[in-house]
Write a protein that binds this DNA or RNA. Sequence first.
DNA 1: TTATATAGTTCAAGCGATAAACTAACCGCC
DNA 2: GGCGGTTAGTTTATCGCTTGAACTATATAA
Lengths: 408, 408
Amino acid sequence: MANTATATASDAATPGSMGDVRRSNLALVLGTVAQSPAGFHLTRAQIAAATGLTKASVSSIVLDLLEAGILHEIGLNPQGERGRPGVGLELNPARGVMGMEINVDYIAAGATSLSGTVVVQEIRERDNRDTASGPVMAALASLAAEVRAAAAAKGMEVLGGGLAVPGLVDAGSATVITAPNLGWVDVKLDVAQLLPGLPLGVTLFNEANAAALAELAHGPHRKQDFLFISGEVGVGGGLVIRSELFTGPEGHAGEVGHIVVDPEGRPCSCGGTGCLETIAGQDAIFAAAGIEGKRQARSESMSALMEALAAEKPDAVLAVQRAGRSLGVAIASTSRVTNIRAVVLGGHFAVLEHWLRPPLVESLSKYAPGKILPENITTAAVGEGGALLGAAGSVVRSLLEAPHRLHS
Amino acid sequence: MANTATATASDAATPGSMGDVRRSNLALVLGTVAQSPAGFHLTRAQIAAATGLTKASVSSIVLDLLEAGILHEIGLNPQGERGRPGVGLELNPARGVMGMEINVDYIAAGATSLSGTVVVQEIRERDNRDTASGPVMAALASLAAEVRAAAAAKGMEVLGGGLAVPGLVDAGSATVITAPNLGWVDVKLDVAQLLPGLPLGVTLFNEANAAALAELAHGPHRKQDFLFISGEVGVGGGLVIRSELFTGPEGHAGEVGHIVVDPEGRPCSCGGTGCLETIAGQDAIFAAAGIEGKRQARSESMSALMEALAAEKPDAVLAVQRAGRSLGVAIASTSRVTNIRAVVLGGHFAVLEHWLRPPLVESLSKYAPGKILPENITTAAVGEGGALLGAAGSVVRSLLEAPHRLHS
DNA sequence: TTATATAGTTCAAGCGATAAACTAACCGCC
DNA sequence: GGCGGTTAGTTTATCGCTTGAACTATATAA
């Protein structure tokens, strides 16, 4: 599973004009402000020093960004220094984006400010398994409208949105190519209708990719390069390289759930054989542990598994150990192909870390020694709402990288 | 094995100035000329139409490129059309680059024009196995000087060079991190001394990556996305995505030879277990086929294998079938992780294609059905000198993408 | 109050792309 | 051969954006 919105349209042979310089510097200034530590407000002079632009250019650029409503002046901040105090600048707290998520058991929507602060968040349980997209989208639209209204009540205008879905997506056409657990195949979503009138529209994301982006933005280490592995009913992945999602030629890279970890293994729902998902997916683990993985009772099945593990029941322990070893094989191979050296475990892999880690580490040292050190295997810092936050964050980021799309 | 020279230095927060526009348009014009069909010479007016730049801008840019010696005016070409005939432009045929290669059994050097035409090429047999780098480099320097003189005699000035080596390299520091079959570990090469006085210097490449780039430039299909798999003593790979080498965070992506294809398999020279190389590498195939893979006799071993296959000797047939199946597993996993949908087989995989293809195709349909169609499995179009041509071509390409580095 | 230091703005200059006018070179046709 | 038509390429004025220096604004220190 993999996809994104960042299409880096650099292949088109387009003439470069002076406007490009402006756009580039607009993004440079905005990026500098966005990356400054929270609560600390850069001044124009500091931005000039940090970017290498002249004060004159920074003033002119900041003026544009203020007019576009992206930046905001905070009063003077005389810090006891000599000289005239500067005017602090911050991302306009009255502008934000919405993140939304459709998953198997719930729909969710939340609004965050441009700096990533969550202002409203709402999760609504809903069984979306094998449901047509229409009713799900309608329910989400209603939820999104509520959240948007709540954000507006707090003085925040929503500029754009991102929607995460557990399946292969094509962001350009807002189409879900396959979402096995929703039963969706080639479903075109009317994302514009979800949140009408947004200047930036709504972008579609793959759930694992969005969660990987959330890890990038909110994770503690601020790693530039890592593989995020999302353990849900399916096993998905998001590959972050140089702080960008790596999407491959068609936007579907990172499908670690379908790496072959046992050539003699069982058939997979994808049509392949011996995929990681057939051993380390939730259903596979439950089955191997002798736990009934009934519909609707997924969280209960997980509780049952945890109890069985705590009681050291052999079936459960062996099932998780086998999953850990297979995960190691898949990560080893991924590391060789993509040169990635850090892994973040999400979903049930994070929950099961205690039992999963020893076989995983052992497996990695057997199949790719020295490539991925144990300290570079971590669990997700962002929990349940990860995909939602990631989708929202990605929309913010694309705005910050191309601020000229707004008004200016 | 993977690496490259293209470092895409876009992460540095550097202010964009008007010079950037010039550089960008310089590259745009040059790229347009370079991509025009061979023998056909674009005029300034045609370039203006193709790029969207004005005639005035194109004239000014072309002037710069003429002064830098990169472009060359060919006389007027009245084509029976009405109106004033235009002046044809081409890449200056009197400028070129050198490609060089150090491999286990030989060293090689060649000079190509900026448009990719090979002007001189020289391969010199030499046993470099477990040899210190000094003598090898000295021998290559002497060979390179000869080739450079021969090119000069034909009126070609060499601007830069590329050196391909069978191992992991760090292009930035011109260091060979490991080249198992040469016995080199952390060897810093004095590439500048190899060809003194070049305006563009000499860049280091991994051999499989360079060969992949050659396939990109010279292959018949002009595919934008493919995985090149180089079958030598080791199994290397080069991943081309959107016409660029994908190098991963540290420049070592594409090591398909060390994907785990059999978790219960044998230990690999890399320290791992069950790597593709332990089943599909030359030594592994020879051993499984019951052929003595002695030093120096590698080409003879290959001949022996071909004979054994022709005679349908079971050991040989089974060895190659197993290699094909394992190759399929590795390609299936790579396809999932990188979203690649086409494969080009090089080295002994190309030689053995007849026997390798059936088990490979079968394996792919078992492990990643629908992902890689049989017609997207092809063999290398460029033969022996592939790495050399690829290295040279990559140096040319980096010049065409940043022509301002020359004089202008 | 004055000196000093820093923030931010104004203004002339330079560079590069653009559009339109202009010159150059060829074809066809009478 | 001369003239209109057509296309190629250059010249010129203008515009947009960054730059650097001068200038104004506002603080602290003595």
